[in-house]
Nucleic acid binder design. Structure first.
Length: 489
RNA sequence: GCCCCCAUCGUCUAGUGGCCCAGGACACAGCCCUUUCAAGGCUGCGGCGGGGAUUCGAAUUCCCCUGGGGGCACCA
C-alpha cells in the first residue's frame, strides 16, 4: 500500500481531551508503524467556538505526549492550508461544481421551518430527515425567496442506495441512505459544514486511512456518498470504540479530569499516558502491558483494536505511571523530582554543591513510593521540613531504655565522623551495619534498633530506608535530630 | 421513536470449533521479603448476559431476546 497518510483533525474548542488524544495516538502509531505521514488539520469551521488559543493548547498537549506531525498549520506541507477556516474558498468552489452537476441544490428553508419538520418526524417515530422540499423549487420561487432576503444553504442530493462501510475494526456495516436526508454542505453564511469540509479535505489531502471514533460511523456513510460525488475513491476507514466513564457513559467533565494537560499537571508521565491510552481498546499479541512509545510503534496494528468500548480506569493508569516512573533513567527522574521540589519551594538552587550531592539521593529514596509526580513533594518533605513533633505514642516508645541505648549509639557513631564531611550511601549503610552488630550483642535487634532511630530522625513511623535518611541529612542534621529526640527519653 | 455498533472476572483484556471445567493485568484479600510505608515476589477471590439452532464437540458460527453504547443539527 503506497503513501500511507493519516490525519488527526481536532476542533480547537478546548484542551486536548483524553478521547481525542487516543484517536491522535492511534493515527500516529499507524503512520509511524507503516512509515506514513501524520497530518494535523484544524477543524475550525465553527467560528463561534474555535479559538487560536485552543489550537495552540492542543498542539502543546500533542507535543507533550510526543505525538509529532509531519504536516500541519505550523509546519506547513504540500496539501495546505491546514486550517479549515483558511480553506473556505476551496469548499465554495467545490460546492459550486456540485451545484452545477446537479449533485447538490439550494435550500431556502428557514431554521424554524426545519425545526418544525423535525419535530413532526420525531413524533411520528421516524428518523428526522429533510424532506427535500427545495429540490422542486422553481426559478420564480427562487427569485421571490431571494427578494425576501432569504439566504440559501446548499444541500447534498443524497442518492437513494445502500452504502457499505468497509470498516477495518467493525467489518462491513450497511446503511440505507434513505434514513438520512439531503444534508447541508454549505451553510447560509457561506461556510462549509463539518461533513463537507471533512470529506473535501480528506480527499484533497490524499488521506489514505481515516481512523476516528465510533461516533462518526453514521457520518461515514454520508462521507462515502460525498467522496463518490467528488469523484474520489474513499479512503480506508477504522472506527475505534469510544472511551467511557465509570458509569459507562461517554467520558466527560463530570467524570473528573478529562484533558491531557490536567494529567500532565498531576504528574503523569507522557509515556505512561500513551501506554494506558493504547491499552484502552488495543492489546499486544504477547500480552505485554508496559511499553515505551517506540515499542508500540513496532507492535501496533489496526487489526488488534477491539470492537467494544472501554471504561477509563484511573487505578490502572496509576499503576502504569508507577511502572514508568520506576523505568525512568536516574538522570531523567532526578530532573523531574528537582522540578517538583523547586515548585514546592524546597529547592532554591538546584545546582548548589549541596543540592548536587543530595538531590540524586532524595530522588532514589522516594522513587518506589511515588505514583504520580504530584506526590514527589509530599514524599520528600521529610528531607526539607522540620521533623514532625513525635506523637504521644512515639514518645512512649522513645522512653524505653533500649531506645535510648540505640539513639545514643548512633549519636556517638556519627559524632566520631569528621565534621562537615558528606556521608555517602555506602558509608551510611556501613554505619548502620556496625551499629546493628554492636546492639545485637546487647540483645537489641531488628525493629528495636531501627524503629526508634526512624522516630528520632523524622518523628514518623514510616518513610524511606534509614541509610537514605542519614546520608541525606548528613552528620550535623542527624546529630541535631538525635539530640532533640533524647530530650523525650 | 428510528438507524447503527457492541456484549468474557468490578475494570482493561487473551481467546477466531477441540490446546479453555477460560489465560493475563489492574483493583481487592492473605502470605513472604523488610525497622516502617512503598516497591517486589507468591497465593487467593472473581467472568463467557439469557434462550434456541448448527456440530461428535461451542466463549468461539447462526437466529431471537435482553442489556449497554453511539448517531439522528445551518456542532464537530
Amino acid at each position: 500500500m503506497a503513501n500511507i497518510r493519516v490525519r488527526f483533525a481536532p476542533s480547537p474548542t478546548g484542551h486536548l481531551h483524553i478521547g481525542s488524544a487516543r484517536t491522535a495516538l492511534f493515527n500516529w502509531l499507524v503512520a509511524r508503524r507503516l512509515g506514513g505521514d501524520f497530518i494535523l488539520r484544524i477543524e475550525d469551521t465553527d467560528a463561534d467556538r474555535s479559538t487560536l488559543a485552543h489550537e495552540r493548547a492542543i498542539m502543546a498537549d500533542l507535543k507533550w505526549l510526543g505525538l509529532s506531525w509531519d504536516e500541519g498549520p505550523d509546519v506547513g506541507g504540500k496539501f495546505g492550508p491546514y486550517r479549515q477556516s483558511e480553506r473556505l474558498s476551496l469548499y465554495k468552489q467545490s460546492a459550486a461544481k456540485l451545484l452545477e452537476e446537479g449533485l447538490a441544490y439550494k435550500c431556502y428553508c428557514s431554521e424554524k421551518e426545519l425545526e418544525a419538520e423535525r419535530e413532526t418526524a420525531l413524533a411520528k417515530g421516524k428518523m428526522p430527515k429533510y424532506s427535500g422540499r427545495c429540490l422542486q423549487i422553481t426559478a420564480k420561487e427562487e427569485d421571490r425567496l431571494t427578494a425576501e432576503g432569504r439566504k440559501p444553504t446548499i444541500r447534498f442530493r443524497v442518492p437513494v442506495k445502500k452504502i457499505v462501510v468497509k470498516d477495518m475494526v467493525k467489518g462491513d456495516v450497511e446503511f440505507d441512505s434513505e434514513v438520512f436526508g439531503d444534508f447541508i454542505l454549505v451553510r447560509s453564511d457561506g461556510t462549509a459544514s463539518f461533513n463537507f469540509a471533512v470529506t473535501y479535505d480528506d480527499a484533497a489531502m490524499k488521506i489514505s486511512h481515516v481512523i476516528r471514533g465510533e461516533d462518526h460511523l453514521t457520518n461515514t456513510a454520508r462521507h462515502i456518498l460525498l467522496f463518490e460525488a467528488l469523484g474520489h475513491q474513499p479512503p480506508f476507514f477504522a472506527h475505534m470504540p469510544i472511551t467511557l466513564g465509570s458509569d459507562h457513559a461517554k467520558l466527560s467533565k463530570r467524570h473528573g479530569a478529562t484533558s491531557i494537560n490536567e494529567y500532565a499537571d498531576q504528574g503523569y508521565l507522557p509515556t505512561a499516558l500513551i501506554n494506558y491510552l493504547v491499552l484502552l481498546g488495543w492489546s499486544a499479541p504477547e500480552g505485554q502491558e508496559i511499553f515505551q512509545p517506540e515499542e508500540l510503534v513496532s507492535l501496533f496494528s489496526i487489526g488488534r483494536i477491539s470492537k467494544s468500548s472501554a471504561v477509563f480506569d484511573i487505578d490502572k493508569l496509576n499503576w502504569i505511571n508507577g511502572q514508568h516512573i520506576r523505568a525512568l533513567k536516574k538522570e531523567a527522574f532526578l530532573q523531574l523530582v528537582t522540578e517538583r521540589l523547586q515548585e514546592a519551594g524546597f529547592v532554591k538552587e538546584p545546582n548548589s554543591i549541596e543540592n548536587k550531592l543530595t538531590l540524586p539521593k532524595v530522588a532514589e529514596a522516594i522513587r518506589a513510593s511515588v505514583v504520580k509526580l504530584s506526590g514527589v513533594a509530599e514524599a520528600a518533605k521529610i528531607f526539607y521540613e522540620e521533623a514532625d513533633e513525635p506523637s504521644i505514642q512515639a514518645i512512649e516508645e522513645l522512653k524505653g531504655d533500649e531506645a535510648k541505648l540505640v539513639i545514643c549509639d548512633l549519636f556517638s557513631a556519627l559524632s566520631a565522623l569528621e565534621e562537615r564531611k558528606d556521608i555517602d550511601l555506602e558509608q551510611a549503610k556501613d554505619i548502620l551495619k556496625a551499629l546493628s552488630e554492636r546492639l545485637k550483642e546487647k540483645g537489641i535487634k531488628g525493629k528495636g534498633v531501627y524503629h526508634p532511630l526512624r522516630l528520632a530522625l523524622t518523628g514518623r513511623d514510616c518513610g524511606p530506608e534509614l541509610f537514605y535518611l542519614i546520608s541525606i541529612f548528613g552528620r550535623e542534621k542527624s546529630l541535631q535530630r538525635l539530640k532533640e529526640a533524647l530530650q523525650y527519653v
